[in-house]
Amino acid sequence: MQYNIRGENIEVTSAIQRYVEKKIGKLERYFHSPVTSDVHVNVSVFNEKQRIEVTIPMQELLLRAEEEHDDLYAATDLVIDKLERQVRKHKTKINRKFRQQGAPKYVLAELENEAFQRIQREEEHEENIEIVRTKRFDLKPMDSEEAVLQMDMLGHSFYVFTNAETGDTNVVYRRKDGRYGLIEPS
């Protein structure tokens, strides 16, 4: 993994960098082949709270988590826990899909332990959809090419904007094949 660690209102020391890289590196044990993606880490300090955001874009999965805590190291540990849950949930869906198609029962044997099964049962009970955060922002009029550039600059997989030509709200997104799509209202 390639690490891109940035700090806002905080200097990213070599100790912080080593700790973050060590913790995020532990996620590689969940994958058969080495992960060849860039890891974007944003460390910031606001109102004496340490905040860490981690984004790991991969081919079939986008891992993203953020956490806020008084201690940066504790926030890092909490963010890694969230990312591990996301990976396990993704692997569970893949295993369930293979089992339904008649594949071998244990596709990922290293994940089949008591802790994984307990977390799996807990997550199945958490199927209720709950909106936990709402973001509001002004939509800048632009063309779709500028929107794609903004999306890539932010490291997101989609971007909402106002089309400068039509005045409609549009969405550009990154497709699984690496190209881009545009959603327009009809």
Rank of each mutant, 00 (worst) to 15 (best):
136 R>N: 08
134 T>Y: 06
129 I>F: 07
118 R>L: 04
115 A>R: 14
128 N>F: 09
135 K>H: 07
129 I>L: 03
107 V>A: 09
130 E>K: 11
107 V>H: 06
114 E>S: 13
129 I>Y: 06
108 L>F: 15
135 K>V: 15
116 F>R: 00
134 T>K: 11
122 E>K: 09
135 K>R: 10
117 Q>R: 13
131 I>C: 11
126 E>N: 08
117 Q>C: 01
121 R>G: 02
121 R>S: 13
111 L>W: 01
117 Q>A: 12
108 L>D: 11
130 E>L: 10
115 A>N: 12
121 R>M: 10
134 T>L: 14
119 I>M: 10
115 A>K: 14
114 E>P: 01
118 R>E: 06
118 R>Y: 08
112 E>R: 09
110 E>R: 14
111 L>D: 12
110 E>I: 13
116 F>Y: 13
118 R>F: 06
130 E>C: 03
109 A>W: 10
131 I>Y: 10
109 A>P: 00
125 H>N: 05
134 T>A: 11
107 V>S: 02
121 R>K: 14
134 T>I: 15
107 V>L: 15
121 R>Q: 15
132 V>N: 05
136 R>C: 04
128 N>M: 04
130 E>Y: 12
118 R>K: 10
125 H>W: 02
133 R>E: 12
121 R>A: 15
123 E>D: 09
107 V>P: 01
120 Q>F: 01
122 E>W: 05
132 V>H: 07
128 N>Y: 10
111 L>A: 00
113 N>H: 14
135 K>S: 07
107 V>Y: 07
136 R>T: 07
124 E>Y: 09
129 I>R: 02
126 E>Y: 05
107 V>F: 13
121 R>Y: 13
121 R>W: 10
126 E>G: 03
129 I>H: 05
112 E>P: 00
111 L>P: 00
126 E>C: 05
131 I>Q: 11
113 N>M: 06
114 E>R: 14
110 E>C: 07
109 A>R: 11
133 R>K: 14
113 N>K: 04
124 E>V: 06
121 R>E: 15
124 E>P: 01
116 F>H: 03
135 K>L: 09
129 I>G: 00
128 N>C: 02
122 E>C: 03
114 E>Q: 15
107 V>K: 06
112 E>Q: 08
136 R>H: 12
133 R>N: 13
117 Q>I: 03
117 Q>M: 10
107 V>T: 06
133 R>Y: 07
130 E>V: 15
126 E>F: 05
129 I>V: 14
123 E>W: 09
133 R>W: 02
118 R>N: 05
129 I>P: 00
123 E>Q: 10
133 R>F: 08
133 R>G: 03
116 F>L: 00
108 L>M: 14
131 I>G: 02
128 N>V: 11
129 I>W: 02
114 E>D: 13
114 E>A: 11
113 N>A: 04
127 E>I: 15
122 E>P: 00
121 R>F: 12
112 E>F: 13
125 H>T: 06
118 R>G: 00
128 N>I: 07
129 I>A: 03
116 F>N: 01
112 E>D: 08
